[in-house]
Design a protein around this nucleic acid. Structure first.
Lengths: 204, 204
DNA sequence: TAGATTGTTAATCGATTAACAATC
DNA sequence: TAGATTGTTAATCGATTAACAATC
């Protein structure tokens, strides 16, 4: 499935949940298109790629659409994840419900600062990095979230990979090197701000 | 400038800073291409679009490249920004240095919870939402960062826009409606996790 | 039935890669 | 000079829009 379609399916899913919460049961390609600023034929092609069929005159069934997108993104499968780096951002994420949106379950938190080791959040105790390998193995953790400083990111990633993690959600600025087969999804907050800066630039 | 090029220029900029920190003074299109998994001709075309000229055999001057990208993204122009929503994420961002990467300067923080109003962070006092309009005007704030719950996001955005903000960095899940001319840059953490989920999905 | 909306194909658009002469 | 790397053009690829017959 093309990456561009995946990104839109994610947007559809979020919005469909809101529509359903408002009591709607169907949605048309034209509605979705208008909201996201794309053509209705693009929406229909996305949904064909997804494998859903709509009904002329009424559109697509919202519940079915949600179900198919969730299945396609594998969001319904629970995947255990560990957080590495309990700084400002790590704390914010640990205490939030972001994880569930991707089907992840936060199962462990690590840091190497003695002042934060032992703290409790979301029912978890912050552990020393030295425990990382063993805990990831014993808990069957499949993914890691990197919220350490950029200077420590590669090393932390190496530890996660050595322990058998298959996917990394990376908040650090550096480009992380991992062996083939390990997935790195970069979440660069700084890039969002740079793009905002560019888009706000007065046109000459 | 095409959006795809902008996104890559941002990546180049971050990486070039790291190269420079390591003592390098030039970079070739092939080096950058390898790191980001694209072709060297794409890199060269990006840099032509940017307006830099390289030297056969040695490549591009890192300092000049950085300067041109910064100028192109308008990162060197300081833009004042206000944070709305002092929850977990708002706290993490307020105390961080993300702002400077996009050329933004955090000048005000707002929330409507009496328990957090009055708290201090990054040299700023958290103010009541009721003060928003006046402070944005008097401080000449041009942008806003939305870290409020999704249910309050549209209303908060309306306040920011009414006060004259031109750009919004939106962390909420909803699609915000703004008048033409106001820029919304969505930073959907949940989508990052959904993409990670999809990419980690075992192939059939 | 009439009409709105789907599913599908063709046309357009934009982005990426390949190739190579020019050049330091 | 020789050779590595740029700047540039053409070819390929993928994504988006337009258009319209099929259908509920």
């Amino acid at each position: 499935m093309p990456k561009a379609i995946i990104l839109r399916l994610e947007s559809y899913l979020t919005y469909l949940g809101q529509l359903r919460a408002n009591g709607k049961t169907t949605a048309t390609s034209e509605e979705l298109a208008r909201l996201f600023g794309i053509s209705s034929s693009r929406v229909r092609q996305d949904l064909v790629a997804l494998g859903v069929v709509g009904k002329p005159r009424s559109g697509y069934d919202i519940t079915e659409l949600e179900r198919m997108i969730i299945e396609s993104l594998d969001v319904d499968k629970v995947k255990r994840i560990a957080l590495v780096g309990f700084g400002n951002l790590g704390r914010a994420l640990a205490g939030s419900d972001v994880w569930s949106h991707g089907g992840f379950e936060l199962r462990a938190i690590f840091d190497n600062d003695p002042r934060v080791i032992g703290m409790e959040v979301a029912g978890l105790r912050v552990r020393a990095i030295t425990e990382l390998f063993g805990v990831i193995k014993s808990e069957g953790i499949e993914a890691g979230c990197l919220t350490v400083p950029s200077s420590a990111a590669q090393q932390a990633a190496d530890l996660l990979v050595a322990a058998g993690v298959r996917g990394i959600w990376n908040f650090s600025l550096i480009e992380i090197n991992v062996p083939a087969g390990v997935i790195v999804e970069n979440q660069r907050l700084e890039q969002g701000l740079m793009t905002l800066s560019y888009r706000m630039k007065p046109k000459a």
